[in-house]
């Protein structure tokens, strides 16, 4: 163990190496490392955000889909209802029309019966009159015997 000037020169070179490391090695590399750390942190944050957004839009899509489904169901239901209504209406209209026609036919028939009866009545009256004429051999004043004839006609 002999301490000598070597010690001082070693200390000087040590100091120079410390200065060199602190000046040229440490800061640039630390800067690069810190920059990368920041980049990674940013990337992770961005990924997180992306995931969140994805989840959000997924739920939005689900919502929209659900709405569309509901709407279409509503539409179908409405159409069904409407069709039912239309059928019902048509049925009702047809029924009314049919009844109306039946009624009118009945009326016509009744009218015709009435007419035929009237005609028949008239003819019977005329026939009766003619017969009475024949029997009495004289002119019966139709005007004078209208009352009798009508009574007779009504009895027919």
């Amino acid at each position: 163990m002999n301490i000598n000037f070597t010690l001082i020169s070693q200390a000087v070179s040590f100091a120079i190496f410390i200065w060199f490391t602190a000046r040229f090695v440490w800061p640039p590399l630390m800067k690069a490392v810190e920059e990368r750390q920041k980049k990674i942190a940013d990337g992770l944050a961005a990924a997180d955000q992306g995931q969140q957004q994805l989840a959000q839009s997924q739920s939005r899509a689900q919502e929209v889909l659900h709405g569309a489904k509901q709407q279409s169901q509503e539409l179908v239901a409405n159409a069904q209802k409407r069709a039912d209504e239309m059928i019902e209406q048509a049925r009702a209209t047809a029924k009314v029309e049919g009844e109306r026609q039946i009624a009118s036919a009945h009326a016509t028939i009744a009218q015709e019966i009435q007419q035929a009866r009237e005609t028949l009545r008239g003819q019977v009256a005329a026939l009766a009159l003619a017969g009475a004429e024949q029997v009495l051999m004289r002119e019966v004043d139709a005007e004078k015997h209208r009352e009798v004839l009508e009574k007779l006609g009504a009895r027919l």
């Binding site: 000598n4 070597t6 070179s13 190496f17 040229f24 090695v25 920059e35």
Partner: peptide, 30 residues
């Protein structure tokens, strides 16, 4: 007295290692 072997060897080693580090660092990328 100077121990030439001690001084020369340590300085060469220091120059090589810290030179290597500085060389790597100069091309460092983030």
């Amino acid at each position: 007295t100077w121990h030439m072997d001690t001084i020369v060897t340590s300085v060469i080693l220091g120059v090589l290692t810290f030179g290597f580090l500085a060389w790597v660092v100069s091309g460092a990328t983030a």
